[in-house]
């Protein structure tokens, strides 16, 4: 039987709390008493209980936030919301820009293995690579993925279902009576998220028994120029879409410039739905109907799940899938 605080207290003839204070080096214990207590503790190889060990556990109250880039995507909103929750719970954030470089990502993850941070949120980047899997397999489980998939193991994950967002956009246009919906994507290199949006688009058509026309799907590099050219391309070869769903903001900007240059009106001639509640999308005229991702919720959840993992060894590992919504503007109906 290992010796307990109580046993030592009895032997020395003091209160348990005194023993505890002495052992933890806290003030309020007489010099002699303290020495007596420490001697006994040493002699009987006193092991502080789990709770006490937990208190003494090396914690930094710092979370690492790995992001693939500052300009890309809507990371600012995610970051802000993660920080908001973290701060409320007494954590600070360090922002690690990995620039989508696996080597950099690995280096930043080492912060976790070296216990220089308590946990990490990894934002974006498509698929969890071996260094992430291995970090978890080595017992550093305080990792939450956001919009990143993992093949081998279950890592707590927050996903935004982009495919569903595209479905909503397409379905909305269908319900307005449009059938030849031009889909302008940034899927030139089969980017996964973009292919998810194409999937949602196709499913909405299928569910409404509209056959999809491959020529209406334009895969671009996502630039403003590409958006501009997409319109002329579609109109010139006489496919004649009756409406557009555009999967990113710069593309939308270009497309709308092109429509206006052609002397057409939005939404009278061409209704347009865009994806994302971004700054660019918000300044385009007319006010755009857009797919809005629940970034605030995703950020808060990511922080909550991570803090839960840090505080509770038994925390449930889970995958949460959040659904975008549609915000109706003035670009689809008049």
């Amino acid at each position: 039987m290992p010796i307990t605080l109580k046993d030592i207290a009895k032997m020395v003839g003091v209160a348990e709390s005194t023993v505890s204070r002495a052992i933890n080096g806290k003030p309020g214990v007489g010099k002699e008493t303290k020495q007596k207590i420490l001697e006994i503790a040493k002699k009987y190889d006193f092991q502080p209980n789990k709770l006490a060990q937990g208190l003494a556990k090396q914690e930094t109250h710092i979370l690492a936030l790995l992001i693939p880039g500052l300009s890309k995507g809507n990371y600012s909103s995610l970051v802000e919301n993660i920080e908001y929750i973290a701060e409320k719970d007494g954590y600070q954030i360090i922002l690690c820009n990995t620039q989508n470089d696996l080597k950099k990502e690995k280096k930043y993850l080492n912060l976790l293995q070296e216990k220089r941070v308590d946990g990490a949120v990894i934002l974006g980047g498509e698929i969890a690579d071996q260094h992430i899997v291995n970090t978890v397999l080595r017992g550093h489980k305080n990792i939450v993925l956001v919009n990143r998939l993992c093949e081998e193991i279950l890592i707590p994950t927050i996903l935004i279902d982009a495919s569903y967002g595209a479905y909503l956009a397409t379905e909305y246009l269908i319900n307005l009576g449009f059938e030849n919906i031009g889909l302008i994507t940034a899927a030139k290199n089969d980017e996964y998220i973009e292919s998810e949006k194409i999937k949602g688009y196709k499913k909405a058509l299928k569910d409404n028994m509209i056959e999809y026309n491959n020529e209406l799907i334009i895969k671009t590099d996502g630039s403003r120029e590409a958006g501009y050219l997409a319109f002329t391309q579609l109109v010139n070869i006489d496919i004649n879409p009756d409406s557009f769903f555009v999967t990113s903001d710069l593309l939308t900007l270009g497309l709308i410039e092109s429509i206006k240059m052609g002397g057409f009106f939005i939404p009278q001639d061409y209704p347009v739905v865009t994806y994302g509640d971004t700054l660019i999308n918000s300044i385009i005229e007319p006010e755009l109907t857009r797919v809005v991702e629940p970034l605030e919720k995703a950020g808060k959840l990511a922080a909550e799940v991570l803090i839960n993992l840090i505080n509770d060894d038994q925390a449930k590992e889970e995958i949460k899938v959040l659904k975008p919504t549609l915000k109706i503007g003035k670009s689809t109906k008049y």
Binding site: I127, L149, C150, E151, E152, I153, L154, I155, T157, L159, D161, S163, Y164, Y192, E317, I319, V321
Partner: peptide, 17 residues
């Protein structure tokens, strides 16, 4: 301890990698 993504069908759960 593997992750099946609840919003993906079986095909996509096998294919995404």
């Amino acid at each position: 301890n593997y992750a099946l993504y609840p919003h993906m069908n079986v095909y996509d759960n096998m294919a995404f990698g």
